[in-house]
Design a protein around this nucleic acid. Structure first.
Lengths: 141, 141
DNA sequence: TTTAAACATAACCTTTTAGGTAATGTTTAG
DNA sequence: CTAAACATTACCTAAAAGGTTATGTTTAAA
């Protein structure tokens, strides 16, 4: 079901997974199938997301049997924005903020600057939120 | 072309149209075809949007030949939120903020409150922005 | 009283994307 | 050699955005 949120399911899952990995003791790792199960994400989808996170050095992995994934970045420095950006966070508040968009209302549209401001406010906020404050752990621990 | 913004094209057009009508001298009105042309919107689409705005008493119309539309609401009280809401502004920052959404991560997901806060901040901002500050007028006036 | 030009409203269409699944690798422990 | 993991690409499908089409109804003016 499509629900059209500011952030997509994939981005939400990426946040969850990163937050969970941030809670693993140093040196430990977890297989993607297990991680996916704990966070209620399909295995294949989780695998694809982890792959993206690895490409931007947020996570790293150990291949082969008994392999798994772990957080590579420092959770005190890693921000929500970093993760969202990795998963294609290109949302603009309004189309007129996007590259290559030509607005016909060049004459005095005052909404434009409003959207620019709001967008910047939110992005700065996302950059300020570090994963060390969003660690996700299991219930029965 | 679909571009996936925070606000939809239809909502953007509704803001434009309302801002233009807010700039008309008291007592004047304009036909939807003319309004649509000035704001670079297709006539029929503009017509459907105006219809929605009328249903919530933001605009009113004069029917028949030489008829047209005008702003009914007070631009000093009418907010961006009012217009967006009329055009189905139901966007949530994240799916987990939506009604009937069941989050499996009841155990300690700290993102939830972050999204709630950000969403409230933006909505309050949208409610504070009145059309008297966003009047849209033609170039060669 | 007819007609042109406007508003009113519902039904329909089409492209794009979210959100996933399937398929097929490659790696490594045992 | 094989099981179980990570790696990567290709494909699928429902639903929504973003319109258009169609068919009214209303009213000023010839």
């Amino acid at each position: 079901m499509r629900r059209n949120s500011f952030i997509s399911r994939e981005q939400d899952y990426a946040l969850r997974m990163t937050a969970f990995l941030a809670g693993l003791p140093k040196g430990e790792f977890i297989s993607v199938p297990k991680l996916a199960e704990k966070l209620f994400i399909s295995q294949k989808f989780a695998s694809r997301i982890i792959h993206k996170l690895k490409k931007t050095n947020i996570t790293d992995s150990i291949q082969g049997k008994y392999g798994g994934v772990f957080l590579k970045a420092d959770p005190k420095k890693l921000s929500m924005y970093d993760v969202l950006n990795t998963i294609g966070f290109k949302v603009k508040f309004n189309d007129c903020l996007k590259e290559n968009f030509v607005c016909e209302l060049m004459f005095g549209c005052k909404f434009h600057s409003f959207w620019i401001n709001e967008e910047k406010l939110l992005i700065d906020k996302l950059k300020s939120q570090k994963f060390s404050d969003y660690i996700l752990q299991e219930q029965n621990n």
